[in-house]
Design a protein around this nucleic acid. Structure first.
Length: 489
RNA sequence: GCCGCCAUCGUCUAGUGGUUAGGACACGAGGUUUUCAACCUUGUAACAGGGGUUCGAUUCCCCUUGGCGGUACCA
């Protein structure tokens, strides 16, 4: 059975690149009827951020990605662990790593290293000055084990390094990149256990992926050069390595790796701005993948159905917000009224708006949903329904009209509208009644509709006058028209 | 420096030896229209360069260039 995993470090908010990696891992697992596991890699204690795990989980759950095993959130939003291969937080697995490191030392696949950080820095400086490949020179590699153990017992600070073979090449077939090979001699004797007794990524990832029965390691391209180290560790333990798939990176418009310094990259930011998860998922999936034909609206289920590494692109993708905006507008337009109301409700409450029944609220949202990009913009754009909007009298006057004429037209319009019953107070009802009235009196459309619309919305640009009038109701509509007339005096 | 990955419109991409190089976003023009959107029609725009292989290369191979990643007791 296929089993994939996403293994973030809780060092802050989930990054859109991370979301994409998680998504592809999830899609691949689900496409093959497999399982998706979530593990936390917190071996770097200096970069930990409070609430990091919750943040990551919330963003994933927002996108619709739910782990089958490992770390998850319960209904109250508390972090929980489920599954029989736990714990799923690396800092809780130290004993497991120590046991495996001991085995490597015993089998002469790893050794104690007492080199100080200062010596290592100096070494690198010399190598750089001589234009050599940088890396550990293996000073401690041949130290007799007995001597090393004596120094350890004496309390000397040390790390454990793996013994990379000095000859040969490591080859593997990457699911997205095909055959890749590296010369072993150029690969460092990587530190696998730090002086603080915490493992490095390289050791922890191999041990955990094996113990947690991961079949496919799907991760970002930045890990490609360290894959030979991992394969070597699998060999040392006598384990069968999983399949590897290294996804291309996401870059910004300047083609640099996406980072927090350059604008919005945290999924949290997009949630807060009112982007829809469906749009984000669709957009991000299409950054490096497509179904091979011209369809482009895909929800999570149809992505699962069609996802395939064969169609994934190898080049880095530019994270371009314009396309995201387009997807968001499309999904906003398509969203059923009831659902839209549900997700906007908290924002209405924040603004302490008096909201009527759902039928009415649906009409209010429909006023602007084709004109905005995000949910936040949507709620902001219909502000004029709930609040008085100050505006200059001058904008009531249509370009082909005058102040006097506008005032006159509005007065007559009020009379006309007054005769319309509350039952007929609908967009279509008013369209025919006012439309007929305009024709009879030979009023130009712009002469009437422009000032009416501005009077009702307080804005130069807005939805049409009749749809606003329907939403406002007869009383409020006439009230606003009278206010406008007063402004023109 | 060394190692590796990558390379089609501005962006996301289709294309797997023979195509008028297709689509989407963005942009431009026109239509609709009381405004802004939406909508419809339409336009501009790409195979990084040089060598091979081949009857024929966007497609296969090599080199160059460029971009990116790695080179940590970070992940």
């Amino acid at each position: 059975m296929v089993k994939t995993r996403f293994a973030p470090s809780p060092t802050g908010f989930l990054h859109v690149g991370g979301l994409r990696t998680a998504l592809f891992s999830y899609l691949f697992a689900k496409h093959h009827g497999g399982k998706f596991l979530l593990r936390i890699e917190d071996t770097d204690r200096e970069r930990l951020v409070d609430g990091g795990i919750e943040n990551i989980l919330k963003s994933l759950r927002w996108a619709g990605i739910k782990p089958d095993e490992g770390i998850d959130l319960d209904e109250s939003g508390k972090v929980i662990q489920t599954g029989k291969n736990g714990p799923y937080i690396q800092s809780e697995r130290l004993k497991i790593y120590h046991k495996h490191v001991d085995r490597l030392i015993k089998d002469d696949h790893a050794y104690y290293c007492f080199c100080s950080k200062e010596r290592l820095a100096e070494l690198r400086q010399i190598q750089e000055a001589n234009k050599q490949a940088t890396g550990y020179d293996g000073l401690c590699r041949e130290m007799p084990l007995a001597e090393a153990k004596k120094r350890v017992t004496a309390g000397e600070s040390h790390v454990i390094r793996m013994k990379m073979p000095k000859t040969g090449i490591t080859k593997f077939t990457d699911l997205v990149r095909g055959d890749v090979e590296f010369k072993n001699e150029l690969i460092d004797d990587q530190v696998i256990l730090k002086a603080d007794r915490f493992p490095t990524y390289h050791l922890a990832v191999v041990v955990d992926d094996h113990l947690m029965e991961i079949t496919h390691v799907i991760r970002a391209e930045e890990w490609l050069p360290s894959t030979p180290k991992h394969i070597e560790l699998y060999k040392m333990f006598g384990w069968k390595p999983p399949e590897f798939a290294h996804l291309s990176l996401l870059v910004n418009e300047q083609k640099q790796k996406l980072s927090k310094r350059h604008g919005d990259v945290a999924v949290r930011d997009f949630i807060d701005k009112g982007y829809l998860p469906e749009a984000m998922v669709n957009f991000i999936a299409f950054l490096g993948w497509n179904p091979g034909d011209e369809r482009e609206m895909f929800d999570l289920d149809s992505l699962i159905k069609e996802f395939d590494f064969a169609k994934i692109s190898k080049a880095a993708g530019v994270f371009n917000l314009e396309k995201l905006d387009w997807f968001n507008r499309e999904y906003l337009k398509k969203m059923p009224s009831a659902e839209l109301i549900k997700i906007c409700l908290p924002m209405f409450r924040d603004r302490r708006y008096e909201i009527g029944d759902n039928d009415w609220l649906g009409k209010v949202l429909s006023l602007e949903k084709k004109r905005v990009t995000t949910l936040v913009e949507l709620v902001e754009s219909i502000k004029f329904v709930f609040e008085d909007t100050p505006y200059e009298a001058q904008i009531l006057v249509w370009k082909k009209s005058s102040k006097e004429e506008t005032k006159n037209v509005l007065e007559k319009l009020v009379n006309c509208l007054n005769k319309i019953s509350v039952q007929d107070w609908t967009k279509t009802g008013m369209e025919s009644r006012v439309g007929g009235w305009m024709k009879e009196n030979e009023f130009g459309t712009g002469n009437v509709l422009w000032p009416m619309r501005v009077a009702l919305s307080g804005q130069k640009n807005s939805p049409g006058p009749f749809e606003i009038a329907e939403v406002l109701g007869k009383e409020e509509t006439i009230e606003r028209l009278r206010m406008a007339i007063k402004k023109l005096e």
